[in-house]
Write a protein that binds this DNA or RNA. Structure first.
Lengths: 115, 115
DNA sequence: CGGCATCCTAAAAGATACTG
DNA sequence: CAGTATCTTTTAGGATGCCG
């Protein structure tokens, strides 16, 4: 099968497509988190969306799900080695974002105004 | 003003949100392109979407538009220095995507099947 | 606690046709 | 050639409620 991607970039986009996925990976890169912790850490995300995006990340081999099988339920999420390598690649982009946070915040403001 | 971003990552996502934007930046990183060239290079993108995303990238200071003011029209697009720095940050991610293209292609196939 | 099912809305993307 | 205008479709995301 020939590659379905025109460049490495849309390959990445394919697995990172989804509003919260980069954030999920970002936070999991810092350590294992339980479901509720993740939801709190990530921000204002609904259960449906979080659970769904986690599923996809798991199916994509990026996130590992570990069900402790207890009552009350306890499920831990972490990055697979594959996910960790992705997180590595994300670092530079993340730094760019932090470094230019001011310009970007400006842009946010401008868009809000002209909307 | 406090940053509207939880981390550098959603800052990036804010300007790169949009199906074709990463691709546009990616291709422009290789040199100036005319409108029609861009459309051909990027892939199956409609005029509406391409023009709209270009507009946003311009408003965000990432892409520069140069109208040669001729008949027939001739408009060239290129990256601003800001855009070039972004493209730099994208390189690592792009390489990750290329490096794992096989796994990722697998994933695409699996998703298509379970759909 | 950690989800899934249902319903709903808004936004993004696409097709098509047309214009300076 | 380089777009714009208009319409339709698709899809992502969110709210709410229920269940093991």
């Amino acid at each position: 099968m020939t590659s379905p991607f025109t460049c490495g970039l849309d390959a990445v986009l394919f697995v990172m497509g989804g509003k919260w996925k980069p954030l999920i990976v970002y936070h999991l890169a810092r350590g294992t988190l339980r479901y509720a912790e993740l939801r709190r850490t990530v921000g204002r995300v609904s259960d449906k969306v979080l659970a769904q995006q986690l599923k996809e990340l798991i199916a994509d081999g990026i996130v590992a799900r570990r069900d402790l099988g207890e009552i009350p339920p306890r499920v831990e999420y972490s990055l697979t080695p594959f996910g960790q390598s992705l997180a590595q690649a994300l670092v530079q982009l993340c730094e760019w974002g932090s470094h230019h946070a001011d310009e970007l915040a400006e842009i946010v403001g401008q868009r809000a105004r002209t909307k």
